[in-house]
Design a protein around this nucleic acid. Structure first.
Lengths: 213, 213
DNA sequence: CGCAAAATGTGATTAATCCTCACATTTGCA
DNA sequence: TGCAAATGTGAGGATTAATCACATTTTGCG
């Protein structure tokens, strides 16, 4: 969050970076901008979020907004980056020391719960995900992030089943991971009790795939 | 496709319906509009699709476009409706007469392949799905469609396992169905051979969940 | 301090784009 | 034929993302 978006020159359509805040004052203003954007997204969705409204609510001018964010997507992206960084750390920690089946079972189960709760509690996350999907560049970055997370799972699997085909394990981990993201997004879009059932069913299915019956 | 969008008065933001074409001439023009839109979406994505460009490519004026489509989303929606109607018929037919485990195994496997091929062949479908995700009203309509499809699967499951808890079977069918959609969308966004592996892994996982080992 | 340069702040303005509307043309039909 | 309904048109209204020329504040340094 401190420095500019990592350069991806091959990837089209990532707008030119802007100045990053170096003074205390501007850093606080950027925080206010992000907070305003987050609130507006939670209220109306990122599509309905107006740049003028973000500026007004943050108590800054339009120009200041564009001083630090090259365009509207960049604001959504900055928020998404925070959430993914947060969950990424969580995931790595949870899976790092898994060494046997029962450990994986427990860690995975907790991970899914955390993810589910996170989405339930943060309406912004759902919306951010939607707009990420609609944008090619952001979608590919999110896919890369998901792949990185799946790698942690694959690493744990390889420790548990060292004799299995690594490619198979990687495929299984990636698939299960993506299925989990889809399951959670599905679960939060239906009634709470049905959502709970779906998440529970997903856990059973995923664990059966990962560590067997 | 013949008549107006079904009324959903509670659901905000579905724009007011327009006249539906009754003369031969206008029906052909509407076809040209949809074809133009489809081509543009395939080229640049539905977000980058410009109404003026659709009109120009279809050889009609902007006004004519808005004569039959209340807004931009309606065009995307009309295309999505065609695809989903097509696949819905396919799904119902494939699952209608399934009565035992082997029948389900085969029908399900074929269904997944068809779905996968459909997405591989039609770049428009992927894009339509993306924009559907970004739009609350369309997302809920798509969810309803998916639920309907899962019902066919649930019905087959109930015939095969009449003693099992119906709620459990419905949950499993819905989850497996959604996981399938997610798996296919994932598969088409990666390299072809990895996509094939992912779809194959999904099939295994889904069938294990549906009919056991 | 004094002061120049860099960083930051501003909002009227530009440009792009969706969509409307008043009016023109064509078609169906008695 | 003649009229009403259906269809066709494109200039222009309205919205909004993003720019840019200029004002203000902070920082670094002798």
């Amino acid at each position: 969050m401190d420095d500019k978006v990592a350069a991806k020159p091959d990837q089209a359509a990532i707008a030119s970076p802007r100045r990053s805040p170096s003074q205390q004052r501007s850093r606080e203003r950027v925080e206010r901008m992000l907070a305003a954007a987050s609130a507006l997204i939670a209220e109306q969705g990122s599509d309905a979020m107006r740049m003028g409204e973000v500026a007004e609510r943050a108590g800054v001018s339009i120009g200041s907004l564009y001083q630090f964010f090259p365009d509207k997507r960049a604001i959504v992206w900055a928020l998404a980056e925070r959430y993914t960084a947060e969950s990424q750390a969580c995931i790595a920690a949870a899976l790092k020391d898994v060494g046997d089946k029962d450990g994986l079972r427990q860690a995975f189960s907790e991970l899914v719960d955390i993810y589910y709760q996170l989405f339930l509690a943060e309406p912004v996350m759902r919306d951010i995900w939607s707009s990420t999907q609609a944008d090619k560049a952001l979608r590919e970055l999110e896919l890369a992030d998901s792949r990185a997370n799946a790698e942690f799972l694959a690493a744990a699997l390889k420790r548990i089943r060292p004799d299995a085909d690594p490619i198979e394990l990687e495929t299984a981990a990636f698939l299960v991971w993506q299925m989990g993201e889809a399951a959670v997004r599905l679960a939060i879009s239906v009634e709470r009790d049905e959502g709970d059932r779906l998440v529970a069913a997903y856990k059973r299915m995923a664990l059966r795939e990962l560590v067997g019956e």
